[in-house]
Design a binder for these strands. Sequence first.
DNA 1: TTGCCGCATTGATCTGGATCAAATTCGCAG
DNA 2: CTGCGAATTTGATCCAGATCAATGCGGCAA
Lengths: 218, 218
Amino acid sequence: MVRLVSVCASLTGDELALLESLATPTHFSSGDTLFTQGAEAHCVYNVTSGVVRLYQLLSDGRRQVVGFALPGDFLGLAMRDAYGFSADAIGDVAVCAFSRGAYTALVDAKPHLLKRLHEFATHELTLAHEQMMLLGRRTAEEKLICFLLGMQQRWARLGKPSVTVPLPMTRQDIADFLGLTIETVSRTFTRLAKDKTILIVPGGVRVMNPERMNAVAA
Amino acid sequence: MVRLVSVCASLTGDELALLESLATPTHFSSGDTLFTQGAEAHCVYNVTSGVVRLYQLLSDGRRQVVGFALPGDFLGLAMRDAYGFSADAIGDVAVCAFSRGAYTALVDAKPHLLKRLHEFATHELTLAHEQMMLLGRRTAEEKLICFLLGMQQRWARLGKPSVTVPLPMTRQDIADFLGLTIETVSRTFTRLAKDKTILIVPGGVRVMNPERMNAVAA
DNA sequence: TTGCCGCATTGATCTGGATCAAATTCGCAG
DNA sequence: CTGCGAATTTGATCCAGATCAATGCGGCAA
């Protein structure tokens, strides 16, 4: 539980007690919805375990996955009145939930914490810019390779460095993240596996030729 | 000059004097570079007049325009050590520049200001998510219509509401923003003009059928 | 006025990725 | 183990938008 709260906040020292008193640990099962695009924003979440799919829908059903939240990530920061995207659990997910009131009180009381949240938000913005480059100007193969390297780096930063990249999300999720169809994602995986650039394993992918992949990601 | 600083900060009352003492008004001519992707981030900028093109480059020359900054917008917030994108002037541009030191001092001294900047950053993040949906899941015609309506709204929020949308950027800039080629942008404009959805005028576009455009943007 | 020079438009053709259509494999409940 | 539904892979064809290639059209310097 101490560990949970510690991950919860990515903070140290004096703020822990305050956070602990305000955080509501919550659990979601695979497919459960944390919140929906346009719904009134009641809570801010900090993911403590599992992976969350973040997405927007167009009225005709087209879907854009805007990100995958991993442990340590914050959700719902961009709250004005309503959430800007929907979020649901990929596999089991644990979060710390903060009510909007608790969140604003916390932020007002602790400028240092706001600074951290602001750093987090600007980092998110940088990632969003990279994703715009990827969506607008990269080929299918480049998209997939950048995605795999990006996920590998994110897991590595969380202390799980490995040549095997876990991919708990479906091919459809990946397609909707990269602006491709499921068929193109599948074919591109198959081609990269034939190349011996990657090895497809249950629940993920093993990076076999990082040199080539880094060269493509440029 | 009072007006300048006022726009500069989008703030009220007691913070103005502080800001005024730290801001360095600067002017750029068409095509001038404010800063370059990867360069050490010395300054934060607040645009006071004109339009700034924000973009990233791939090593082979492919370009993604990640945004157009209008008066009131902040640039370089996502500074860690280096700028995440390049910025240059489209036509004449005036900005207030804050040195990194002045910026961090200001932010540490005035939590209220940090809160404003954080709101601005989260708003930017929301826009970035919308742009991801546009780049990943929209057709060329939808992209262009969403772009025009988006620019119209942004000018309107700045107190310049009009059915004529100014487009000071080139067709190539628009193409690189929407993930299209210049030819597709030109053809799509021509088709929308034939439709009587828009009227192409020097330096911009006049919205002729906002109902249809809003329906497409959904 | 003339002649560039960048932009923009228009046309012809090509192609990467979408769409349509089956298999195949996997997970798992019975 | 067996059957079923969902996810994935694979194949055939199509098409929106890219690419290649002129042509048009200001703006502006001489």
